Simulated assay, not measured.
Amino acid sequence: MSDLNATFLQAVADSKQLPERPDNMTLLKIYALYKQATEGDASGDRPGMTDFVGRAKWDAWKTLAGTATDAAQQQYIDLIESLKD
């Protein structure tokens, strides 16, 4: 396992222990970076108009299309670190 991957996995664990709950936009960013880092570009159909949460998550993930796994992992790590302080 690479150092980046190990650090990413630690950041995922740390994200569950943040001192306070991030705002919704930050939560969407965390979700999108996690999905991009673990699954790559968004796939499947965009959720329908009545699925507000699913649609917002999918849209946030879709904005990261083309971002490399390593880059997404590093951005995720940096974001979680900034929220721990």
Rank of each mutant, 00 (worst) to 15 (best):
M1G: 12
M1D: 11
S2I: 05
S2T: 07
D3K: 11
L4H: 03
N5A: 11
N5G: 08
N5W: 15
A6I: 12
A6D: 15
A6C: 12
T7M: 10
T7S: 12
A13I: 13
S15A: 14
S15H: 11
K16D: 15
K16Y: 15
K16A: 15
K16L: 11
Q17I: 10
L18I: 03
L18R: 02
E20Y: 12
P22K: 00
P22Y: 02
T26M: 00
T26D: 01
L27N: 14
L27D: 14
K29F: 04
A32M: 00
L33R: 03
L33K: 02
L33W: 00
L33V: 03
Y34R: 08
Y34L: 06
A37M: 01
D41T: 00
A42F: 02
A42S: 00
S43N: 10
S43Y: 12
G44V: 10
D45W: 07
R46N: 04
R46K: 03
P47C: 01
G48R: 12
M49Q: 14
T50F: 14
F52P: 08
V53F: 14
V53D: 15
G54C: 04
G54H: 04
R55K: 04
R55G: 04
K57F: 00
K57N: 07
W58I: 03
W58N: 02
D59P: 01
W61N: 01
K62W: 05
K62S: 05
T63F: 04
T63Y: 00
L64H: 00
L64A: 01
A65K: 10
T67K: 09
T67W: 08
T67Q: 06
A71K: 15
A72W: 13
A72N: 09
Q73K: 14
Q73G: 05
Q75D: 15
I77C: 09
I77E: 13
I77F: 10
D78F: 02
E81R: 10
S82G: 08
L83C: 01
L83K: 05
L83H: 04
